[in-house]
Nucleic acid binder design. Structure first.
Length: 285
DNA sequence: AGTCAGGCAACGC
DNA sequence: GCGTTGCCTGAC
């Protein structure tokens, strides 16, 4: 099957576009229709809008380019079966979480967009994170047209640095405005070398650089490693993960000890396990 | 009206 | 190291 004007994006294993978009990594994709085909559209970093859709049979189709950009962005190049092979053998909880939502993928977002979005996420719920992202985009990003709708790219660090903390506060950011503004300035000044960090292969180095930023702690840094850096061993612990580790895995420790246990126990793809468990916990606990 | 939410930094011990 | 507290905002 093919869809007019769209490129098919191949993948192996389970994939659900809907579940991936709802899984707490990506906050700005919007429903859109292209050539009478219903799907989702959004900007990747500072690029113009992309479009993606999934048929009932599971086929994934998108624009623009040859699909390689979208494939990488949505983790369609991940070998899910072999990732599952690295999980602990006997784990009924994880098995149930995977069965609950088998099609979730770890995205690979542009680093600045990911970092900035998670800086604004602290003590916020998904709907609000989304509202903040959209407001920042429409105010400081660049407008692009697709199929009669307007989509905004995520603002460049320079745009947010110039805007200033007080202006950012007007986007419902509260105390997060300071952190976001400082992060933007750190990138503009080169204090945080975004380009170097995007291509850095050692997660420890990226982690160390991220923790230097005001407003970035272990949780947000791990989110950036996992959702942008492609380091699938990173294991962000938020209240939901902590809850499921406590209630279903009987773990009573917290902080670094819990972090170390999780990484050791779930293994090299602990972050994928985290993503299944997170979604499962959010729906069932 | 008060509580609480998908963290963090600053401070006290 | 560990625990506590204040922080903006919106939803209930």
């Amino acid at each position: 099957m093919s869809l007019p004007g769209l490129v098919e994006i191949p993948y192996e294993g389970a994939f659900s576009l809907e579940d991936t978009l709802k899984s707490g990594q990506l906050f700005h994709w919007e429903r859109a229709a292209l050539n009478d085909c219903a799907g989702y559209a959004g900007c990747l970093g500072s690029r113009g809008p992309s479009f993606i859709t999934q048929t009932e049979e599971g086929g994934v189709y998108g624009l623009p380019d040859d699909g390689a950009v979208l494939s990488r962005y949505f983790g369609l190049d991940h070998a899910i079966e072999s990732i599952h092979g690295t999980f602990p053998g006997e784990d009924a909880v994880l098995a149930e979480a995977i069965a609950y939502c088998p099609g979730i993928r770890l995205a690979r977002q542009p680093m600045w967009e990911c970092l900035a979005t998670f800086i604004t996420s602290s003590l916020k719920q998904v709907a609000h994170i989304r509202a903040i992202s959209m407001k920042l985009r429409s105010r400081y990003g660049e407008a692009h047209e697709l199929a009669g709708q307007t989509f905004y790219s995520y603002p460049e660090p320079g745009a947010l640095a110039r805007a200033g903390e007080d202006a950012l506060r007007e986007c419902s950011l509260g105390y997060r405005a300071k952190s976001l503004h400082l992060a933007a300035e750190a990138i503009v000044s080169g204090k945080f070398d975004l380009e170097a960090m995007e291509s850095e292969e050692d997660p420890e180095k990226v982690m160390a650089a991220l923790l230097e930023l005001h407003g970035v702690g272990e949780k947000i840094a791990n989110c950036v490693l996992l959702f942008s850096g492609g380091f699938h061993g990173a294991f962000p612990i938020d209240v939901w993960i902590e809850r499921i580790l406590r209630e279903n895995y009987r773990k009573r420790v917290r902080g670094h000890k819990l972090q170390k246990w999780a990484v050791d126990y779930f293994g090299e793809n602990a972050g994928y396990a985290q993503q299944y468990l997170f979604h499962f916990a959010r729906k069932t606990l």
